[in-house]
């Protein structure tokens, strides 16, 4: 098994954290992982994206020119990656910000209203973990237990107080999938 995922959105949506958490979870399961953030001026401003590869074997290229999974948190991200997703792959769209339909029928689409769900939880910032929880529930790249545990590593140190709300957000995303798909 070698699965490549791209996470994309605009700065502040926590896109890099999504990828990082997935990579940590993969590592905790003793899988081979690479986490490759896009690097450049755009990291500090507009769009942000990262690529995560999780594999049972050594990973050759950390680059995904045709990823199995793409998570798009806004429309420009969907537009950027919609033609790259592997045929038979899945695109996860933040349906609060994306109303457009995907012009492909060989790719499965999973809609998650991440902003709305985060708002319901009383913390607008956890939309990323809601989306990640949904994505992992659908794909099973890692176990939800590992993912939840990974949050403790990701938020080590100063951000410890945020562990619980982020773990709850993961669960909320997973529950949303269970209820709607």
């Amino acid at each position: 098994m070698l699965l490549k995922s791209v996470f994309s959105g605009f700065g502040g949506q926590g896109v890099l954290m999504m990828g990082y958490a997935l990579a940590v979870a993969g590592m905790e399961e003793d899988k081979h992982v690479t986490y490759l953030p896009a690097y450049g001026a755009e990291v500090r401003g507009g769009t942000a994206n990262c690529t995560v590869v999780v594999s049972d074997e050594e990973i050759a290229s950390p680059i995904a020119s045709s990823p199995e999974f793409v998570v798009a948190m806004n429309y420009p991200s969907m537009a950027k990656y919609q033609n790259m997703v592997k045929s038979g792959g899945i695109m996860f769209l933040n349906s609060d910000l994306i109303t457009e339909t995907l012009p492909r029928d060989d790719v499965k689409v999973v809609l998650v209203p991440a902003n709305t769900l985060a708002h319901e939880m009383g913390n607008d910032r956890v939309l990323n973990m809601i989306m990640l929880g949904a994505m992992v529930r659908v794909t099973g790249i890692v176990s939800e237990e590992s993912l939840s545990q990974a949050i403790e590593t990701v938020l080590e140190g100063k951000k410890r107080s945020l562990v619980e709300i982020n773990q709850k957000a993961l669960a909320k995303g997973a529950e949303y999938i269970a209820a709607h798909n």
Binding site: Y20, A23, M27, V33, T34, Y35, L36, P37, Y39
Partner: peptide, 10 residues
Amino acid sequence: DGMLGQMMEP
């Protein structure tokens, strides 16, 4: 290069 520098691996 920047990719090796930025990429995270275990």
